[in-house]
Simulated assay, not measured.
Amino acid sequence: MSKNNSTPQVYLVGAGPGDPDLITVKAVKAIAAADIILCDRLVSPEIIDRYANKKTEIVYVGKECSKNASTPQSHIDSLIIQHASQGKKVVRLKGGDISFFSNVLDELKALKQYNITFEIIPGITAASGAAAYAGMPLTARGYATSVRFLTYYKTEILSDEYWKELGNSEDTLVFYMSKGNLNGLVDKFLALGKTDDKKIAVIEQATTPYQKVYTSSLEDFHKKFQNKEFVSPSLVVVGKVVHLHEEFSWLETPIQEGIYFKSVTNGSLVSTPQNLFEYAV
């Protein structure tokens, strides 16, 4: 809760990685009490169906940059401020955990600027959900003593010096939002060497009925998957723990293909203010 301890007007909520049962009780309470929910694409539609009041307004403000179907962050910030300033209880609902590779900092700054009370409700992040449902504990004893959460959505985001460190690291490496640069990511590791004991896993649509896990040595990845178009969202795990998947995988392979997270965006239909000041309290 914000520092003045008053009832929050805005709840920033993590919905979990996909399986609608992987949501916290606190998140369910916030969703049920909301007047309006600003919902990302990577939120299970069952969560809305189960827990949102039928009178609650649902506004989809998803981000899918690869398809140029994203709602601008400034627009999302404006919607939050607009509705909170009207006295509504606002839930900003995002897939996974609200604090992992999201734009929550922009939203926090906007809320702070206009003195709007808020609460952050964490969720199970994609890395935890994907690893659990793929049977590969991220810090399994004897395989890894630590784990790093990274992203490689832009090739320049990691420096050459940092790549050298990753190449020598015994950590489990989890890459978010990196399927578009996957071949280049593998090439980076191959160029650094020391890949004999490591494997790579690509986990599609983790924790959903359509989850699929593809594993390979780094050396064989291009031969097996160079022309494969992985479904979004896909999480990438690199490290010794990937070896555990074959032995401890417990989730049944889906019997059919499908897309769990649909591309739904209606946030762009609401006019965007010139600046947030229009909605200052």
Rank of each mutant, 00 (worst) to 15 (best):
I31A: 07
G239V: 07
F277G: 14
K199Q: 14
G129N: 08
S234A: 15
F189C: 09
V236D: 14
P209C: 14
D40I: 13
D160N: 14
V104S: 05
A52R: 08
A131M: 06
F225S: 00
L93I: 03
V281P: 11
E170H: 02
Y210Q: 05
T151S: 03
E170K: 12
V242I: 05
P20K: 14
D196E: 12
T253Q: 13
P209G: 10
K179M: 12
S2V: 00
P254N: 10
K223E: 04
L269Q: 15
V213E: 02
L276W: 06
A134T: 14
N168P: 01
P122A: 05
S85P: 01
L105G: 08
N53H: 09
T24C: 03
A140Q: 14
A69R: 05
K54M: 03
D40C: 12
D196N: 02
F230S: 03
V28K: 04
L108F: 07
L111V: 04
K63Q: 10
I80Q: 02
G16P: 02
Q73T: 02
I203D: 05
K164L: 08
A132C: 11
I31Q: 08
Y51W: 14
T71P: 00
H245I: 15
A134H: 09
T56Y: 08
P17L: 09
E246M: 07
D21R: 10
G18H: 12
Y143P: 01
V231T: 13
Y279S: 07
L79I: 08
F230K: 08
K224Q: 12
K3A: 11
V202G: 04
E229T: 13
V281W: 07
G14C: 05
I36P: 02
H243V: 00
L42M: 10
A30V: 07
F230T: 02
T139V: 06
H75C: 11
F189P: 06
L182K: 02
K164R: 12
H245W: 10
V264E: 06
L93C: 01
V186E: 01
L235P: 08
P254A: 14
